[in-house]
Write a protein that binds this DNA or RNA. Structure first.
Length: 795
RNA sequence: GCCGAAGUGGCGGAACUGGCAGACGCGCCGGACUCAAAAUCCGGUGAGGGAAACCUCGUGUGGGUUCGAGUCCCACCUUCGGCACCA
């Protein structure tokens, strides 16, 4: 047989798939019965801000293996692809390289598509789109209008995260450790009018409906953490001089008697009027100004600062008058922006009290019982918490309350390359939505789209000036654009019906394909994209636009691929990019090597030696199967060792891919089978073993598998049913009985599989090695594990 | 500090429900083929002891449960990831 030549084979089959539209799937006919075997396989769509790297090879090969596996196990598979082409990464790349963002992303998309095709990923290319296509963002705008109508999108003045480098506002989800997730600059707090999605209204839904998700625990834990639901109570403190009540949120109402001072966040709305009425107003205003200017990171880590207002609040439970302070360790956007400080039982309050010499009053003893707390003294503190909240309730001074860490999603961006927000500001009518029929609001070209703090769209004066859709007077368009995560919060629905020009998608079609059965992507999106998309899906459900409440039924979080310690390969000169790898080793070897490294949900280091090993394996497979194809032998595989090995391999690979979601071990199993085949070329089961190996490796190495399948006299392996293991042939007819004495292995004996237990024990006792260990001692206990071992316990 | 994941040969890793630790691959060592090299093929490869048959030790550390623990329980150490003045 000829030599294994990856390029010839890969080019040949890629052409066949393209010409036969092998991986395109039709949408269901209207009113057709639901196919229970549909399977929507999706991976997070790439940003076209550069070319693909080895990490993308992992993600899309994972999806590819599953798509092939599900198709061949009887599902109708939807496996689309597109590009998240709006947003900062692409825009920054454009600024760096020079040129218009559109040109840059479209050039990158061309390149990425080529790489994807060269890797042989089984994608339905007829459904491809980019989020910057007007035909797509038209519907992003349409959905925004629906959210606006439903009160899920709104505009408010808020203190937001401002990145001074990227010159834009960032969502909380895009700030890590007080720094911009993209560029690493420290974010500043700015008070601006901004657009928000009311994701906090769905906090409990996002938590409760996790029970319907087959997701890794670590990702769910991150989301839970991010949402940060915490149960406590809201308590009203009276300020007599001002004739007002100020609510505080606390998780520890049991410590209420220990509250010795009261703190407001510098951003608290009452601060202004307090300063006005206070003799030390200037001092207060000066403190508030300084606190506002203090970087968030320092505010969190530095020593505590604060200022006394001169006012006092009354503790509702004992009428104690406690001083009201303003301090920046209290955050405006958590709870009510005001706290009752209990320095004896809260570390932060203690630090503050010590610094400003405020009293510390212990109200819980070492046994966890209340002391010095009037009628509640002596109660265990959990019980006391309930009793105190109840008492507050009957006196109209408090109630149970829940607080969340999650905040509304601010999606205004002061940048150019994003989806325009379809809004017109009118002097008379205020905020006016652009009528649906006028969508899309096209993103205009501007002279200069570099960030300057003022949104670049403001320069497009002709575009900005527009008649108010409501009254016809001159209005001005919204010049902010949407966060790119809005685009990716519904793209999976558009794939269901990507060419629809009268709706974002046909509801019936989307209801059929959705939810995504198997979603793959990086866990770095756990508290960003994955939470936004869940929120969108829930709102769409409540707007009557989808029957489903969760977008991704199953999620697989792939690990990160590093390339740091990679040695330079002599032969391919340190091949590192996917294109270089395909060029040097072929797509099949590349695909195999990235999945063979280890468990795909853990981080991994990519090394060239792995891909060389895979190339060796493919040559070995090529030769072994080729020998079978060339030989005339045919007939029944029988039930010999090789046949049984093949059946066991089928069983294992099937279980690993379907149930266990383990992608490296099926490769090992097939390697074992090929090793056995090489050792037994004349075996009656050689042909069966060869076909099994080719068939099982097909999702990983579809090109070489297809070629060998053809040489074995078959066609279209990608459509062939997945092999099935014969349960009768899953075990050998003999097995190696492990004989233990006191739990330690002393001998291994080959015995017939059907030997009864007492006979197994008899065989075990006959073993000379066992005899030597027993040394005539009395056997106290005998443990028999069928088909595995006998353990003799003595002494 | 809180939440989560993980510690197994020289390396990546396997061992699914408590039952042969180290599958598979990389690397390394030896051999075959070759004028030679590459490629390929065959054999070996956890540590210690022994001429050998074999024996002992061995899955981060220390305990425990069990006939039997990489796997279960308790305590701890280390690494990585997320959150972090969240009241």
């Amino acid at each position: 047989m000829d030599k294994y030549d990856a390029h010839t084979i890969e080019t040949k089959w890629q052409r066949v798939w393209e010409e036969s539209r092998a991986f395109e799937v039709p949408n269901p006919e209207p009113g057709a019965p639901r196919n229970e075997r549909k399977s929507y396989v999706l991976e997070m769509l790439p940003y076209p801000s550069g070319s693909l790297h080895i990490g993308h090879v992992l993600v899309y090969t994972l999806g590819d293996v599953l798509a092939h596996f599900y198709r061949r196990t009887g599902s109708e598979v939807l496996r689309p692809m597109g590009y998240d082409s709006f947003g900062l990464p692409a825009e920054n790349a454009a600024i760096k390289e020079g040129g218009h963002p559109r040109e840059i992303v479209e050039r990158n998309i061309e390149e990425i598509r080529g790489t994807m095709k060269r890797l042989g990923w089984a994608i339905d290319w007829s459904r491809e789109f980019s989020t910057h296509d007007p035909e797509y963002y038209r519907w992003t705008q349409w959905l925004f209008l629906k959210f606006l109508e439903a009160g899920q999108a709104y505009r408010k003045a808020a203190i937001v995260n401002w990145c001074p480098n990227d010159q834009t506002v960032l969502a909380n989800e895009q700030v890590k450790n007080g720094r911009c997730e993209r560029c690493g600059f420290e974010v500043e707090a700015r008070k601006l009018d901004q657009w928000f999605f009311r994701i906090t209204a769905y906090a409990d839904h996002l938590l409760d409906e996790m029970k319907d998700l087959n997701w890794p625990e670590r990702v769910l834990a991150m989301q839970r953490n991010w949402i940060g639901r915490s149960e406590g109570s809201e308590i009203l403190f009276r300020v007599e001089e001002l004739d007002i009540d100020i609510p505080v949120f606390t998780t520890r109402p049991d410590t209420l008697f220990g509250s010795t001072f009261f703190v407001l966040a510098p951003e608290h709305p009452l601060v202004d009027s307090l300063a006005e009425k206070s003799p030390t107003g200037d001092e207060i205003r000066e403190y508030v100004r300084k606190a506002g200017a203090r970087p968030a990171e320092e505010r969190a880590a530095g020593t505590k600062t604060g200022v006394f207002t001169g006012f006092f609040a009354t503790n509702p439970v004992n009428d104690a008058r406690i001083p009201i302070w303003i301090a920046d360790y209290v955050l405006m956007d958590y709870g009510t922006g005001a706290i009752m400080a209990v320095p004896a039982h809260d570390e932060r309050d203690r630090e503050f009290a010590e610094r400003f010499d405020l009293p510390i009053k212990v109200v819980i003893d070492d046994e966890g019982k209340l002391v010095d707390s009037a009628q509640f003294s002596g109660l265990p503190h959990e019980e006391a918490a309930k009793a105190i909240v109840e008492w507050l309730g009957t006196h109209g001074r408090g109630r149970s309350a829940v607080s969340y860490r999650l905040r509304d999603w601010g999606f205004s961006r002061q940048r150019y390359w994003g989806c325009p927000i379809p809004i017109v500001y009118c002097g008379d009518c205020g905020i006016v939505p652009v009528p649906e029929e006028e969508l899309p609001v096209l993103l205009p070209d501007v002279q200069d789209y570099k960030p300057k703090g003022v949104p670049p769209l403001a320069q497009a004066e002709d575009w900005v000036r527009v008649p108010c859709p409501r009254c016809g007077k001159e209005g001005r368009r919204e010049v902010e654009t949407m966060d790119t995560f809005v685009d990716s919060s519904w793209y999976f629905l558009r794939y269901c019906d990507p060419r629809n020009d009268h709706a974002p998608y046909d509801r019936e079609i989307a209801d059929y394909w959705m939810p995504v059965d198997h979603y793959t992507g990086g866990v770095d999106h756990s508290t960003v994209h994955l939470i936004y998309a869940r929120y969108f899906q829930k709102v769409l459900n409540e707007l009557g636009l989808s029957v489903h409440r969760e977008p991704f039924k199953r999620f697989f979080g792939n690990g990160f691929v590093t390339q740091g310690g990679a040695k330079i390969s002599k032969r391919v000169g340190g091949a590192a990019t996917p294109d270089e790898l395909v060029e040097g080793y072929g797509a099949d070897a590349t695909r195999l090597s990235i999945l063979f490294i280890g468990p795909a949900d853990q981080d991994m280091e990519w090394t060239p030696s792995g891909v060389e090993g895979m190339q060796r394996f493919l040559r070995r497979l090529w030769r072994a199967v080729g020998d079978v194809a060339d030989s005339a032998v045919d007939g029944s595989p029988g039930d010999g060792a090789l046949a049984r090995k093949a059946h066991r391999t089928i069983a294992r690979a099937t279980d690993d891919l379907g149930r266990r979601q383990q992608f490296n071990t099926p490769i090992s199993s097939v390697m074992e089978l090929v090793n056995e085949l090489v050792k037994a070329p004349g075996d009656p089961a050689a042909r069966f073993a060869a076909e099994t190996a080719v068939s099982l490796i097909q999702p990983y190495a579809p090109h070489v598998a297809e070629e060998l399948w053809e040489r074995l006299g078959h066609a279209r392996l990608w459509q062939d049913p997945w092999p099935q293991a014969d349960p009768a042939l899953l075990e050998e007819d003999t097995f190696e009985l492990v004989v233990q004495v006191n739990g330690r292995v002393r001998d291994r004996i080959e015995v017939p599989a059907d030997l009864p237990e007492d006979e197994l024990v008899a065989r075990a006792k006959e073993s000379p090695k066992v005899q030597a260990q027993l040394n005539g001692a009395e056997i106290r206990k005998t443990i028999v594990v069928p088909r595995k071992l006998v353990n003799l316990v003595v002494g």
